[in-house]
């Protein structure tokens, strides 16, 4: 009988766990929707920005602005690594951290010194536990993503770049393409590489000759740091979306596993119960037999 009780307790425990994972799945789904809405609202801004930048930077000499100038020699680089604040989202954080580690190793192999700026508690914790030197830690900021956050993250890279401490700045984040595909990517933030205008856009944008005030160069000076903010904000939003999507999937799997465990345990419980009843019956039958023969 003791074994039966144990199994029952275990089933109750797994059921409770399932309730929690199911709730977390729903929370993640709600948050995913929120972030996706934010991304939607950001799209017109980002699109317009890219369009204007592309039409402005056409035919402009990269030497004109320090943020565009390609360095002759690189010996120090900056890395901005975006991670989540919370766990329980599968291999999401580990993927990002591994990518960051690999990046640092590669840079070290090339003989480059690296500055690491880590955003998100999980990444900060990881590097602190390993006593790895990191330049900036920004834990606990991924909960609410807004443009101000993007500005302060972008400033980390920008300041180091402008002060000449680093010649290149890279950002590592999780690119949300679909629920099933969110690869970790490394992108160069600085110096800025203006994207070539493609097909349709080139025709649409190229047709307009702007009068500019002040000069196109001066506007570009104003525009480029803002462009950095746009890039970082989009990376932050992508990372946050991927985080929630990963958590949803992880919690969904956990809920499924709980269900499976409950089924198995119920089977074991029923078998044990059956065995106990059979044993009891045997006892009674055996007893009755003994009596009638006596």
């Amino acid at each position: 009988m003791a074994a039966l009780r144990d199994i029952q307790n275990k089933i109750a425990a797994v059921k409770k766990t399932r309730q929690i994972t199911r709730a977390m799945n729903m929370v993640a789904a709600a948050r995913l929707r929120q972030v996706q809405e934010k991304t939607e609202r950001f799209k017109p801004y980002a699109a317009k920005f890219a369009e204007v930048l592309a039409s402005l930077s056409q035919g402009i000499d990269p030497e004109i602005h320090p943020l565009l100038a390609v360095p002759e020699q690189v010996d120090k680089v900056g890395m901005i690594l975006l991670t989540a604040d919370r766990g329980l989202c599968g291999s999401f954080n580990m993927n990002l951290i591994n990518k960051g580690q690999k990046f640092l190793q590669e840079q070290a192999a090339l003989g480059h010194e690296a500055q690491a700026h880590v955003v998100g508690r999980k990444g900060c914790d990881y590097f602190r536990r390993r006593k790895t030197e990191i330049t900036t830690q920004m834990p606990g900021v991924m909960n609410v993503i807004d443009f101000d956050l993007a500005v302060s993250v972008a400033r980390l890279g920008l300041n180091a770049f402008l002060a000449g401490e680093v010649q290149e700045v890279y950002i590592i984040y999780s690119d949300f393409r679909s629920m099933a595909s969110m690869p970790t990517v490394v992108e160069r933030l600085l110096p800025i590489q203006p994207e070539p205008v493609e097909g349709e856009e080139a025709e649409a944008g190229g047709g307009l000759e702007y009068i500019t005030e002040p000069s196109a160069e001066e506007i570009l000076v104003d525009l480029l740091p803002r462009y950095l903010n746009v890039r970082v904000y989009s990376a932050l939003l992508n990372t946050a979306t991927s985080e929630q999507a990963s958590r949803m999937t992880a919690m969904d799997n956990a809920t499924k596993n709980c269900k499976e465990m409950i089924e198995n345990l119920t089977l074991v419980y029923n078998k044990a119960r059956q065995a106990a009843i059979t044993a009891e019956l045997m006892d009674i039958v055996g007893g009755a037999e003994a009596l009638s023969q006596g």
């Binding site: 204007v52 402005l56 702007y210 009068i211 500019t212 005030e213 002040p214 001066e218 506007i219």
Partner: peptide, 19 residues
Amino acid sequence: TGVDGEFGVLYGHVPFLSS
């Protein structure tokens, strides 16, 4: 308000870009 001062825009303005 542009960086070089205020400017007004009406319908049919020439293509114009300002900080």
